[in-house]
Amino acid sequence: MKKPTLKPAFIPHLVCNIFGHKFEVSKNVTYHVKEYQCTHCKKQMTTNSNGNLIPLTAKYKKINSVLEHIYNKKELRLQEKSYASSIN
Rank of each mutant, 00 (worst) to 15 (best):
I63D: 04
I63M: 11
I54A: 05
C41R: 02
K2R: 14
L53C: 04
N17P: 08
K7T: 11
E75A: 10
Q44L: 12
Y60D: 10
N50M: 15
Y71S: 10
I70Y: 01
V29Y: 13
Y71Q: 11
Y83M: 15
Y71N: 06
I18G: 09
Y83E: 03
A58K: 02
N50W: 12
H21L: 00
P55T: 05
L76E: 01
S49I: 11
L6F: 04
K42A: 13
I18P: 06
N52S: 07
T30G: 07
V29E: 05
N64H: 14
C41S: 09
L53F: 10
P8E: 08
M1I: 02
N48F: 08
L14F: 07
P12D: 04
Y60I: 06
H32D: 08
S85M: 06
T39K: 07
L56V: 10
K42S: 15
A9K: 15
S26T: 03
S82C: 08
H32E: 08
L53I: 03
N48E: 11
F10L: 11
A84L: 09
P55A: 13
P12C: 06
L14H: 03
T5L: 14
P55L: 07
Q37D: 00
K27A: 15
F10I: 04
M1C: 07
L14K: 02
L53V: 04
P12S: 12
N52D: 09
L53D: 05
T39A: 11
K73P: 01
L67Q: 01
I70V: 05
L76G: 09
Y71L: 14
T47A: 01
G20Q: 09
A84V: 12
E68K: 15
Q44K: 04
Q37A: 04
Y36W: 10
V33Y: 15
H40M: 13
V25L: 04
N88W: 13
K3E: 03
K34T: 04
E35I: 00
K81N: 03
K61T: 01
N64Y: 08
K43G: 03
Y60K: 07
E68P: 14
R77M: 13
E80W: 11
H32C: 09
F23C: 11
K81D: 02
H13W: 09
A84R: 00
A9C: 13
P4M: 15
A9Y: 15
K43Q: 10
V25T: 08
H32G: 07
T46C: 05
V15I: 08
N28S: 11
Y36C: 01
E80S: 13
E68D: 12
N64G: 15
G51F: 10
N64W: 03
T47F: 05
K62H: 06
K27N: 08
N52K: 15
V15T: 03
I70K: 08
H69N: 12
Y31F: 15
S26F: 12
K59G: 07
M45G: 10
C38F: 00
C41G: 10
V66G: 02
H13E: 11
E80I: 15
E68N: 11
K42D: 01
L67C: 08
T47W: 00
C38Y: 04
H13L: 13
N72I: 04
K7I: 07
Y60N: 09
S82V: 11
I54Q: 13
A58M: 05
I11H: 00
V33M: 12
K59H: 06
T57I: 14
C41A: 13
K73I: 02
S49Q: 05
N88I: 09
F23D: 01
